[in-house]
Design a binder for these strands. Sequence first.
DNA 1: TACTAAACGAGACGGTACGTCGAGTCTTCGC
DNA 2: GCGAAGACTCGACGTACCGTCTCGTTTAGTA
Lengths: 196, 196, 196, 196
Amino acid sequence: MSKQPDPARRSERSRQAILDAARELVSEVGYAKLSIEAIAARAGVGKQTIYRWWRSKGAVVFDAFLALSQDGDSIALPDTGDIEADLKTVMRATVAEFADPQFEAPIRALNTEIISDPELAAHYREKLAGPVDEAKKARLRSAQQAGQIAADADLDLALELLYAPLFQRWLHRSGPLTPEYADALVDLALKALRPD
Amino acid sequence: MSKQPDPARRSERSRQAILDAARELVSEVGYAKLSIEAIAARAGVGKQTIYRWWRSKGAVVFDAFLALSQDGDSIALPDTGDIEADLKTVMRATVAEFADPQFEAPIRALNTEIISDPELAAHYREKLAGPVDEAKKARLRSAQQAGQIAADADLDLALELLYAPLFQRWLHRSGPLTPEYADALVDLALKALRPD
Amino acid sequence: MSKQPDPARRSERSRQAILDAARELVSEVGYAKLSIEAIAARAGVGKQTIYRWWRSKGAVVFDAFLALSQDGDSIALPDTGDIEADLKTVMRATVAEFADPQFEAPIRALNTEIISDPELAAHYREKLAGPVDEAKKARLRSAQQAGQIAADADLDLALELLYAPLFQRWLHRSGPLTPEYADALVDLALKALRPD
Amino acid sequence: MSKQPDPARRSERSRQAILDAARELVSEVGYAKLSIEAIAARAGVGKQTIYRWWRSKGAVVFDAFLALSQDGDSIALPDTGDIEADLKTVMRATVAEFADPQFEAPIRALNTEIISDPELAAHYREKLAGPVDEAKKARLRSAQQAGQIAADADLDLALELLYAPLFQRWLHRSGPLTPEYADALVDLALKALRPD
DNA sequence: TACTAAACGAGACGGTACGTCGAGTCTTCGC
DNA sequence: GCGAAGACTCGACGTACCGTCTCGTTTAGTA
């Protein structure tokens, strides 16, 4: 039986240094060229300290950005009562985020790893995508109650209808990502979702 | 100025052996653990011969599957006159394809590489996605002429509305991929696209 | 500034395995066809472990034979009081050594490398040739005191007069290496060195 | 049975270009880093043309310098009647030659290869060393007839006594090579060789 | 307050693969 | 029909990291 490390004794200083180094290095050299060796060196940490607490390079980077995204936001969507306006606001913000080179690299990195690591993907859904999706679904549910969206609409599917086109266009760079695109997408999706 | 290899002198036998080996190895060990070294060994080819003709592991694998997909199909979608039925047929087929472990691995591999290599992504859109998308848009255009889809619909967006949710769910494993899901998606998308 | 390896952490087991493998392989395939790759494989060692501690193939082989020659001998020449007899004994032994296929290959290997690597040559003179030459000069000095050799003779030159012809004939294979040759050489050299 | 090339059809232009390129490259990068590839490129010649006419890199370089040394000199040593003066002249010239960086590199290269290639060594003795040695022995023989050297002296051995110390000191860089050294060596050797 | 066990920085280790170079062979094309 | 050009297979190069494994050295929490 192998020994498990004791989280109580974990060095917070090292943990932070590693996540910081990971973030910096992803930005500097990209995810593919990122190495555990480099993270350890930059963080002034032994390699074993990384291997002790993370399964893989992907897991480190994941945690690095998880920590980032949990800092600032309360993940509640605007609710002015007008679902169309609110969704356009949010979608335009998403478009802007995808266009920001600061977000670009790490999000692509995350997706690279998630594609081929089901376990990491599950973690991602639970910790990152999940909460955000829940917030989005809450807003849709509110629209449902306001009669702006069909009462029997499948909200998971609705969410995909709204976000997947945007996500795919960004991931595959298959077309321009503009505010107008966001608006058109919302219009179309709401047409699909409106009560009969 | 460095010397360029002369495509006229290229060994067709080696080219085929490399693409075959790449295909086999992706299936056997997965894309992440695939190495140029292994491809060369399996193909009975010098590594230099791979480096001479391809920029990266991703480019080799890409060509391997490009060659595959160009072999058999004429990429024309069914057109029975009933757009809903036809789309459900096609979407169910796509669902099945995504579920087939034979396709699973290489398509994930392709996406992994495409995400972070814009040049390869462009190549992908041009050679693989493009023709297929054109065929799909042709079918939608036919439905437009038949009055089943709004005359002013943006077909690129329409395509995304139909396929992106499916693709995203598969890529992120964020939900079950069933024939019923395909049907529901078609229903919803067609609702968005139908004439007023 | 680049990092230096820490000799204190060096694995003695690996060091020995590498030197042994180098010795074996020089005998088996010759120096020219010897590769670091093969040494590492035979020694069950990573290539880096060789590169970490030696500058070149030549340096490894050098150390391999340095270790050998330091094992057994106390490098003191016989001193019966008769310089002629003693030198003939030693020179005949040298002739025999040069004829021994076990010594042949590695000594040629050593000389190959020493010719074009001044640093290695210096190391060689210091660690291998030096001590032996000192022992030989000690014997000559003793003969000097006994009046068998001119008091003002340059012992370095004397040494060369004795050994260089033998060495050159062996190196260039320019003539037979026999005990008689050794004797003749000693006779001639002593004639040059004797007191007037 | 394999095909032999027909010397009659050999391209003199290519032969010269190859030998010239070999000479230049040995001077520029040294023998160890010299490659057939580079010689072919510099000479504007296909690699096969080199492999067709030479067995190895060493053979090419050897021919390159053989051609050189056969151009200018008639290999006759000075004969003033004073063997000591004549030898000192010749030995001082040899010392100067060894010190000349232009000669240094190629001669070391030649020796490197000769050590481990008996066939090349034989070729060397026959074509390069031989004639020179004969000339030297002729001068010694003349001294013998003049009574300056013992009548029964073994001239091969005598030659070695004179040249081997010089050669060895140069090859192993084991001491300074000065005109004084040449003189001392001649004095000592002549003492060994003089009639009783 | 000392003891002790764990986590720590450091880095050597056996390995795998990298991307490059050159060897020697084989093929194609032009003179 | 020879020879330049150069693509081929093969093997080694020297490097970068992998993930594992000691080493001392902090650093906590018992005792």
